[in-house]
């Protein structure tokens, strides 16, 4: 399904990077403020799907040159991986770690939680699924 409107095409070109960046931001800050992997992933996926509508399948492919299943694989793998690692250290499944480290040019300590890696996995899965489903159904339509 493609909507061929020049306005949409051009505005999408502008909006897309911002949206994708915002999606990443929403995911990263999710631990502290509204947001998180699901929301970030959905925003990301929606953006890509809208881009596909305005620019066509090939453009989407250029933007994301992998089959969505790879994203699903990576996402699930990341989530499972972060959950399994504590097991190897003799801790229960999914045990999270929290800590802080200082970035070179920042006075604020960067607060991290291992759960964020998990959240990244969630995001990847959501992107993969959202994009995958819409792509598949659009292809059926074409």
């Amino acid at each position: 399904m493609t909507i061929s409107s020049p306005v949409l095409r051009n505005s999408m070109r502008l909006i897309l990077p911002i949206t994708l960046l915002y999606a990443m931001y929403a995911m990263l800050k999710g631990h502290h403020e509204p947001g998180g992997g699901f929301i970030g992933g959905m925003i990301f996926a929606t953006a890509i799907c809208t881009y596909r509508m305005s620019h066509g399948a090939l453009a989407q492919l250029r933007l994301m040159p992998v089959h969505p299943r790879v994203l699903i694989f990576l996402g699930l793998g990341l989530a499972l991986g972060t959950s399994v690692i504590p097991l190897l250290l003799g801790e229960p499944f999914l045990r999270s770690a929290v800590g802080e480290f200082h970035l070179p040019f920042s006075s604020h300590p960067f607060h991290y939680a291992s759960a964020m890696a998990f959240d990244l996995g969630v995001m990847l899965v959501v992107v993969g699924v959202g994009v995958g489903m819409i792509t598949q159904l659009s292809e059926e339509l074409e």
């Binding site: 631990h31 947001g35 699930l76 499944f93 999270s96 607060h111 969630v122 899965v125």
Partner: peptide, 26 residues
């Protein structure tokens, strides 16, 4: 380690649910 309680529940306290949930999605 997070201020957004809902998110902490999702990815940490009850991260196991979330793991299942993204599996359902996949």
């Amino acid at each position: 380690g997070g201020r957004n309680i809902v998110n902490v529940i999702l990815v940490d306290f009850r991260g196991f649910d979330t793991l299942g949930e993204i599996t359902v999605l996949s």
